[in-house]
């Protein structure tokens, strides 16, 4: 479809060594992304396992030289959404993401611990959470994230903006600021100027 990384073309039937090496290198990122979606490392490993099996089975549809990460993330994300739909609700939960009292290196004004942050992150709507993780944590461009999610780059942009505002509200970072930007008054126009 509109996903060039996943376009089934020029099938190379054998799985090359570089394909395997590439996948191996992506496993930590696949796990981190999966755990960010589902909130549990155990569940994340199930998702990564499923992703590896699918990637191997469809290795022929991966075009060498294209973005392996985007291709794998698309598979993983689709797997997650399938489960998500099947169960009808999210299993997001911080049980599997023990963070102890690890403080996030914030700045002088704000102190935050990782577990608090993860609770807030997992409370976000899934679409905002995945956009924030891809763009804000992994450093993907809006365009790359858009390919993985099969939406327009502008959609990713607005999900990131709304996600940030919502996170700030959940973390109590900006109470006075957010009332003016429409977060505490639901259904007002866009909470943040597009960036």
């Amino acid at each position: 479809m509109s996903n060039p990384a996943a376009r089934p073309e020029t099938a190379s039937p054998s799985v090359s060594g570089s394909f395997k090496t590439g996948i191996l290198a992506e496993i930590p990122h696949l796990r981190a992304f999966a755990a960010s979606l589902c909130g549990s490392l155990t569940l994340a490993d199930d998702l990564v396992q499923e992703t590896l099996l699918k990637a191997w089975a469809h290795a022929g549809s991966f075009m060498a030289g294209t973005n392996l990460r985007a291709w794998l993330f698309t598979i993983l994300r689709n797997s997650y959404y399938t489960h998500h739909r099947r169960y009808g609700r999210e299993v997001a939960d911080t049980d599997g993401l023990h963070a102890g009292q690890v403080a996030v290196q914030a700045n002088q004004e704000f102190h935050m611990d990782l577990l608090d942050f993860r609770r807030a992150l997992l409370a976000l709507p899934l679409e905002q959470r995945e956009a924030l993780v891809m763009v804000g944590a992994m450093g993907l461009s809006h365009e790359e994230a858009a390919i993985i999610c099969d939406v327009a780059a502008g959609t990713i942009k607005s999900r990131v903006s709304r996600g940030r505002v919502r996170l700030a509200a959940l973390l109590g970072l900006a109470s006075f600021d957010l009332t003016e930007t429409g977060v505490t008054a639901p259904r007002r126009s866009s909470p943040l100027p597009a960036r």
Partner: peptide, 19 residues
């Protein structure tokens, strides 16, 4: 706030990558 959220996102992600 944006800066703080950005750092927290990266800390969250990096900790998972290092598992």
């Amino acid at each position: 706030i944006q800066d703080t959220i950005g750092r927290a996102l990266q800390a969250h992600y990096q900790a998972l990558v290092l598992e």
